[in-house]
C-alpha cells in the first residue's frame, strides 16, 4: 500500500511541477495545489498505513485501546490543510488582483517590479563621461 501511495505522491509532484513550469499564473497555482496534496499524502504515508480503529478514547478509559491508528499524522495533515487552504485563498485572490492591475497572467510578461532594462544590465552609468557634469551627461544620454 505504501508503494501505491509513494507512486501517487510522485505522480502528483510530477504533474504539479509540469503545471508550475508552464509560465501561466493560474496553472502555477493549480500546480501548487497538487504539490500541497502530495506533501500531505507523504505525511500520511509516513505515519504508516495500517488497518486500525479510530484513535478515540472510550468513555471511562484514559488511553485509546490497543491497535488504534496513529493520530499525530492526521493532526499534522489537518493543520497543513488548514494552512494550505488559507495560503491558497490568498494566492488566488492575489492572482486575481494581479491580473486586474497587470492585465496578464503570463509569467514572462509580468515585469512591473523588475523592468527589463534592469535585468539586461543596461546601467546608464556606463555612458557617463567623468569629465563632464552629471547633468550634461544626462542630457547627452537623452539625445
Amino acid at each position: 500500500m505504501e508503494l501505491v501511495l509513494a507512486g501517487l505522491v510522485g505522480f502528483l509532484v510530477a504533474c504539479g511541477a509540469y503545471l508550475m513550469m508552464s509560465g501561466q499564473l493560474i496553472r502555477f497555482l493549480f500546480g501548487l495545489v497538487l504539490l500541497s496534496n502530495a506533501a500531505n499524502l507523504a505525511i500520511f504515508a509516513a505515519g504508516r498505513l495500517t488497518y486500525a480503529t479510530p484513535p478515540f478514547v472510550v468513555s471511562g478509559q484514559i488511553a485509546p485501546a490497543a491497535g488504534a491508528a496513529n493520530a499525530l499524522p492526521q493532526a499534522l495533515i489537518l493543520t497543513a490543510i488548514v494552512i494550505g487552504f488559507g495560503l491558497l485563498a490568498f494566492a488566488l485572490a492575489l492572482a486575481f488582483r494581479a491580473w486586474q492591475s497587470l492585465g496578464t497572467t503570463e509569467m514572462d510578461a509580468m515585469r512591473a517590479c523588475e523592468p527589463v532594462d534592469f535585468a539586461a544590465g543596461k546601467t546608464k552609468e556606463k555612458t557617463l563621461d567623468p569629465s563632464k557634469s552629471y547633468e550634461r551627461n544626462r542630457l547627452e544620454a537623452a539625445e
Partner: peptide, 16 residues
C-alpha cells in the same frame, strides 16, 4: 477571517 476573504473577493469580482 473566512468571511472577510469571501466578501473581499466577491466585491472585487463584482466591481470587475
Amino acid at each position: 477571517a473566512v468571511c472577510a476573504i469571501i466578501f473581499a473577493l466577491e466585491e472585487a469580482v463584482f466591481a470587475e
